[in-house]
Amino acid sequence: MVLIADGAGRYISSGVIQISVTNLAIIVLMILVFVLAVVLPFPGRHHDDSSDRDS
């Protein structure tokens, strides 16, 4: 893995893959947000009724 550092942005290179550190950070952040959205409990779920129908 080679870290190309120059005035034109920081890039990470590995074989055929080349990606800017910023884009990588954004993608990692999106995956993290997705995982958190799936795993974290959603608030406001109280069993106040079970028979009312949305019509």
């Binding site: 997705f34 958190l36 959205a37 799936v38 974290l40 959603f42 779920r45 069993h47 079970s50 009312d52 949305d54």
Partner: peptide, 16 residues
């Protein structure tokens, strides 16, 4: 614009 949703709607993934 219903003010109720099915009870199974219980995840953060819905807000996206």
């Amino acid at each position: 614009l219903p003010d109720r949703q099915p009870a199974y709607m219980s995840s953060w993934i819905y807000v996206f």
